[in-house]
Design a protein around this nucleic acid. Sequence first.
DNA 1: CGGGTGATTGATACCCATCAATAGTGGTGG
DNA 2: CCACCACTATTGATGGGTATCAATCACCCG
Lengths: 260, 260
Amino acid sequence: MTSVALNQYLKRLQAHSVLADDEQQAILTLPGETSTVVAHRELVRPGDQVDRAILVCHGLLGRYDLMRDGSRQITALHVPGDLCDLHSVVAPTTGWGINALEDAGIYTIPHNAIRQLVTVYPNLAMVFWRDATLDASILAKWVANIGRKSALARIAHLLCEIGLRLEAAGLGHHKNFALSLTQEQIGDMVGLTPVHENRTIKALREQRLVTIVHGRVDVLDWGQLTLIADFVPTYLLPYRQHHLPDATADRRVIHWRNGA
Amino acid sequence: MTSVALNQYLKRLQAHSVLADDEQQAILTLPGETSTVVAHRELVRPGDQVDRAILVCHGLLGRYDLMRDGSRQITALHVPGDLCDLHSVVAPTTGWGINALEDAGIYTIPHNAIRQLVTVYPNLAMVFWRDATLDASILAKWVANIGRKSALARIAHLLCEIGLRLEAAGLGHHKNFALSLTQEQIGDMVGLTPVHENRTIKALREQRLVTIVHGRVDVLDWGQLTLIADFVPTYLLPYRQHHLPDATADRRVIHWRNGA
DNA sequence: CGGGTGATTGATACCCATCAATAGTGGTGG
DNA sequence: CCACCACTATTGATGGGTATCAATCACCCG
């Protein structure tokens, strides 16, 4: 079990960084505990002090922020292979919460284990830092998405992103993938109410761009969808070529660039 | 000149991390170039490949994202002492732009110098990573701010944040500080048009919460302002106490907690 | 003095939130 | 097996918040 999750994570790291053999071994032997959680279960509550990071094995997790009036904004989505709590290693006091958006399996890794790893293999600190940077890049894109786009474009953009991320995680094709989120959860990611979320999804369906039924997303017109979403996948690209100054530009970018 | 900027940055790092003497010296001797830029000048254009990081000496810089229709969203604000491009060290291909929001002075540091530093002093990788985490924490808060709050609350929240960040940088008091941003720029940070931005600032003034005149912000009622902003400064707090498991909890938190 | 940038205000339109009601779905327990 | 309940999806009606278009004003600078 555990090795499956860690293999997944290693694969993810190798998408953007080059790891030496012993470093790979170190990643694969990270200690932790496997567990399963049901949808809506809170793994971290806002304000908690945490001492372990959460690796997503299957299912989706969400990081969220609560307003005083009770409304919720999901600030980050974590797909299988994401070490979603990585930043907590360097900043253990959270201002956010993490919960399961659907039934999920996780592998929790003590911070101490990660800190030790970094001490023994300094290069891994760079790797983790780079991994966290992808997270930040997505956050910045979400700010722009929510701040400057219509409801239709926001949802379209989110679906494009999720499609590519799930495909990169080996879970389906970016034009056709399983996604059992509720409309309310999707709305919480793009800053919309459930009712308007519903109407906008209906509009996407009527414009023959995407259908979302039975927990499955089916993109009917990827080109048009990326167009109205103003979706440019650059912000998701792995940075492998930049690992070192002397990068041997080995770009394994297959369907990441406007997968027409 | 240069030592002033680096001193400022070192001070900022020490707000959340403990650095050994030689590490401090290494930071202070980072090579780079000092220069001044006029307001609106673009330092990095979206899509550029960069090989140096930008340390803000004075003035404000902004990271932004452009939409296809020409509208702009500022995704991050950088105050003096911020090494605003830090993530570019591990991810040199940008999807964003950086420009001067007002006249500014900067100190540009080659990535190679930072990479070398990290190789010699592995602990600094953790420090940089932690520094970048604060950035990400702010980004997440902005997502929530823009996604789930009214125009009034959004601007109020932004002003609270800027006040505390400027004060932490030694530039005024959180209730009274210089800020020569245009209303349009502020609007670009919170996802509002210039016209509505203007009306909302007027409302803040009429409710005797804040005035913004002649490039100076004057908070009339900090308590009320943080209330309507739903502002909880946790996400800005330095994490110094968490540097190591055996943290000697020396919290230098003065007016960070609801500075009434 | 002229020109450009930013601030301000008014009028109007539209997007999205809110309130409300109904229907579908799955799970639970009698 | 059915009744019941909670949750989700869907649709309608209405109101409000923000965008848009347009005009005027204030200010700085050459």
